[in-house]
Design a protein around this nucleic acid. Structure first.
Lengths: 220, 220
DNA sequence: AAGTATACGGAGGTTGCCTCCGTTTTGCAA
DNA sequence: TTGCAAAACGGAGGCAACCTCCGTATACTT
């Protein structure tokens, strides 16, 4: 349903459009406005919940309502783009963290980052959930990317001997996600503490042969 | 926030208003219209999802929009009333079933009834969930009533020796509820089959001393 | 039977959604 | 550089839903 040609032109990570699709590359102002809309929408959803008026979003992005609708013909498509963008940022941050600190610390930071990102997205959640459940390949794509980032962090930690080897990225993501979801209230402090606990667990059997079976991570 | 004076005047089960509150009893047409609105709203939510226009609901109840707003000043208060009503009906049906058939059969019927009621309410779910989580005493009241009905059915079965004794109403409700939630898709057939399975489990250790530990019911 | 508190109902103001189209800007080519 | 066509912009305006307000109708009281 979503126009397939606007594929990956998120805000950062502009990869030169695949040369096979000979379509001209989008105009500079179009790209700029699209990015403005996505960041404004993210802020608006976070600050004022799922039912901000699209007019407000357009205004705060400094563009007309028509421009918003051309880029995002439905509210859902805007939500989807915002979510994709958030995931992109999260994945990028994983790489940055890995470059600037030891892997276990990077992993800890990233998990906390994840919690805060989810807390920020809470306003969108009621919109996002039906979207993810009715649109399996959108859900697969985003989940896949996040899992890849988690796996990368984990593997770096394992290679450095500071993180246990018997946990995979998908499980880690599910566990952190579950914690975020279970603490329904607004305060993300509880989540942060629980995730910290989880991280300590990840460090527990590090660098040893994974002989001792891990305590099963509880999922809500 | 909801006007406290409209307390329990659901549709059936009109208990004579508590004599201490000397306020006059509501006019007959008010009661009638309130009931009409609740039944029309239930039908509308089931048929057309959470975002039916309130104007449509008023129209299909045969009353003016002003009347709807007087009885239910917010959309939430209407949803709440509909849900309360559904729970009432379910509890009543428990008693009826107990009077007309053996307890184990009554329990089986009631569980299926529950599944179908949830399926019908699916349209309201996105409205109901935030309501239940932000309004703890509403949630407690309804859950309490439903649990009482489930417990009554269970106990009757236990007394007759056809239902095992080591399950309580709250757990049963959670299990059935969990099954309904986990099968996110529209078809309630899957839920009905799973609930049937659950019921067979309930019958398993009946009339014997509950020596064999039950297999834990899986909850999604 | 008359009076009054109460309930009814819909007109209309406000706001948000979305479309349509005249104007502006951009990228390409001569 | 200049011109031009394609692409993007942006807001006016139609539509639909929300909600308020108040004149009218109706049920209970004495």
């Amino acid at each position: 349903m979503v126009a397939p040609d606007v594929a990956v032109a998120a805000s950062e990570a502009i990869e030169p459009a695949d040369p096979a699709s000979a379509d001209r590359r989008p105009r500079a102002d179009a790209v700029r406005n699209r990015d403005l809309l996505i960041t404004s929408a993210a802020a608006a959803f976070a600050a004022r919940g799922a039912d901000v008026s699209l007019e407000d979003i357009a205004r705060s992005a400094g563009v007309g309502i028509g421009t918003l609708y051309r880029h995002f013909p439905t509210r859902d498509s805007l939500v989807e783009a915002v979510y994709r963008h958030e995931i992109d940022v999260l994945c990028q941050r994983a790489d940055q963290l890995l470059e600037t600190m030891p892997p276990d610390q990077a992993l800890a930071e990233w998990m906390q980052l994840f919690v805060r990102h989810v807390a920020t997205k809470r306003g969108m959640l009621s919109l996002l959930k039906p979207l993810l459940s009715t649109n399996p390949n959108f859900s697969d794509q985003t989940r896949g990317r996040a899992t890849a980032a988690a796996t990368k962090l984990l593997e770096a930690g394992v290679a450095a001997g500071t993180v246990r080897a018997d946990v995979d990225g998908g499980d880690l993501l599910r566990a952190v996600g579950g914690i975020c979801m279970s603490t329904d209230q607004e305060r993300s402090e509880a989540s942060e503490r629980l995730v910290g606990l989880l991280f300590d667990g990840l460090r527990h059997g590090a660098a040893g042969p994974a002989a001792t079976p891990p305590p099963a991570a509880a999922s809500a």
